[in-house]
Amino acid sequence: MFETFLDFLMPFSGAMLGAVSQGVLWGIMALGVYITFKILDFADMTVDGSFALGGCICALFVMRGMNPLLAVLAATAAGSIAGLITGFLATKFKIPGILAGILVQLALYSINLHILGGPNQSLGRAPCTIMDWISRTFKLAEAFPFSASSVSSFITGIIFTAAVIAILYWFFGTEIGSAIRSTGDNAAMSRAQGINTDSMQILALMIANALVAMSGSLVMQQQRFGDVSMGIGAIVIGLASIIIGEVIFGKRFGFWWSLLAVIFGSVIYRLIIALVLQLGMKSQDLKLLSAVVLAVALAVPVIKQKAVRYRKNFAEENNA
């Protein structure tokens, strides 16, 4: 009986571990979305394109024998250039931010096709990825014979996520980082204080899309497959991660906690997806599920406010 239960549970535990590792890697992308949507208050639609850009560039360089870590750095730099172009269009040519992002996103689709030389590229038996190196270094195949790839992806995600959060926490405490936050809060007041808000917007978009591309390169190495369409829906995933993190974990301990909550939100989102798939939902319905999860996450704060208001009015009526 117990062995039967374990056999039933094994696919779920493996899927959950894989979902956690994916959630951490995708969480870096969600941090990039957090910078634009929450800190800068800029609706950046470049994300879908810059995520795929990071994956495609990383796939190209790894296939050509480049060190996988250097390939991630190259992908990150390419993502910052995508953010630079979006920021330039929005600030210098006064194109609405959401439209500027869409234009760059569309352009990146064709660029990614040229980078890969086609719609997709499998690494196959190509030189090792970061996950392969970690797996060999710590002999994960011996310790975790059935989930070594998920464990190595999780370790990789933890290392990169910890480094990114530490750097972001330090950076947004500096004068330039504070200027970016001020620009997002009140651009007119920031200009009155002598802050070049155009430069701050461009810099924030560069940092955000650099993180998105970094996430795309790591996800590509995890799945060993680069695809020009791998970023479709990334903006929805990023927003869902942010909202889920805020709803569940809130803003309790300062800026570092808000950043960490985004990662937790990404992991929870991936766990929800994995659980639903294990219960029999078809993969073709994932986009629909993502939209429903995001809609519910966005509705929860409003429902909470209405519930508090209702309880307050009810208490006042009873005390009257």
Rank of each mutant, 00 (worst) to 15 (best):
F249W: 04
Q201G: 04
I272V: 06
K38I: 11
I244Y: 15
A204I: 06
G238N: 03
V276W: 02
R136C: 11
S80R: 02
S258D: 11
A297E: 03
A192P: 01
S152I: 06
I111Q: 10
G226M: 05
T137I: 10
A192K: 00
M214C: 11
P96H: 10
I202N: 01
N319Y: 15
Q121R: 15
G55Q: 10
L17F: 14
S182G: 13
Y169H: 15
Q221T: 10
M63V: 10
Q105Y: 11
N318K: 07
R181C: 02
L113W: 13
K94Y: 15
A208M: 01
A240W: 04
I85S: 06
K282N: 08
L53G: 03
Q222S: 10
F37K: 12
F160D: 01
V151L: 08
T197K: 00
R311Y: 05
L9G: 12
L53H: 14
A75Q: 03
T156H: 01
A297Y: 13
G265N: 00
I35V: 07
L288A: 14
Q221F: 09
K94P: 11
A166I: 08
A162L: 04
V292A: 10
Q121T: 11
I273K: 01
A192L: 00
K94G: 11
I273H: 06
L239C: 03
A210T: 08
M10S: 14
M281C: 06
N319Q: 15
A291D: 03
V276E: 03
V212E: 11
I28M: 08
P96L: 02
P119M: 07
Y34Q: 00
S135D: 04
I115H: 15
A299F: 07
W256I: 12
L84A: 13
L123G: 04
W170T: 03
Q22D: 14
F146N: 14
M189I: 11
L203N: 00
D132T: 05
L40A: 07
Q222T: 15
D198E: 11
P11A: 03
I134Y: 08
A82S: 06
F2C: 13
L289V: 00
F12S: 07
L205K: 07
M131D: 14
Q105N: 11
M16I: 06
G65I: 10
A179F: 00
I130R: 03
R309M: 07
R136W: 15
F255E: 01
D285V: 12
A297T: 02
V164H: 03
I243V: 14
A78P: 15
G157S: 01
I155F: 08
M230H: 12
F12R: 05
V212Q: 02
L279S: 12
S178C: 07
A179R: 00
K251Y: 15
G124E: 11
T129H: 06
L168A: 11
L260V: 14
T4F: 14
A187Q: 06
I134W: 08
L106W: 10
L84V: 05
R136F: 12
V308P: 13
I244F: 14
S152N: 03
E316R: 11
I242S: 05
